[in-house]
């Protein structure tokens, strides 16, 4: 499984696209594979505060609820409303139109805790070996 080189990744399987202090956040293809069939996504609303390592929403899959863990801290300034109408975007275009939230980061330094594509690929492969 490959991951776009222009994004950075968290150990909780979210991706981040950084533009200054603005972070666009979504989930990786690996996370989707492990969730089986995704039914819906519930995201915290605009103006909510999120913290790195804390939830920003929940994904509903068949029989399961999986909390989405934020890779950054800050305030949510935009939420992808299209996911409410068509959660299939997550499968068809996870790294572009399948984005979930946009966060105005309060601490850009936290990005140092995240991984580049190569490191994340190794991380995922290690997880697969553990499984």
């Amino acid at each position: 499984m490959s991951f776009p080189n222009d994004l950075i990744y968290s150990s909780e399987h979210t991706w981040v696209r950084v533009d200054g202090d603005i972070a666009t956040v979504g989930i990786t293809g690996y996370a989707q594979d492990k969730l089986d069939e995704i039914l819906s996504v519930e995201l915290f609303p605009i103006d909510s505060s999120v913290e790195q390592g804390e939830p920003f929403g929940v994904i509903e899959s068949v029989k399961g609820a999986t909390e989405l863990i934020s890779p950054v801290s800050g305030d949510i300034v935009s939420v992808n409303e299209d996911l409410a109408d068509d959660v299939g975007i997550l499968n068809s275009d996870a790294y572009d139109t399948g984005w979930m939230i946009v966060v105005e980061m309060s601490d850009v330094g936290e990005l140092d805790n995240l991984m580049d594509a190569e490191t994340y690929t190794d991380y995922v492969e290690a997880n697969e070996e553990d499984d």
Binding site: G53, K63, G64, T66, E67, I69
Partner: peptide, 8 residues
């Protein structure tokens, strides 16, 4: 019947 939640 069973159900799950997972995080972290």
């Amino acid at each position: 019947g069973s159900a799950q939640v997972r995080t972290r």
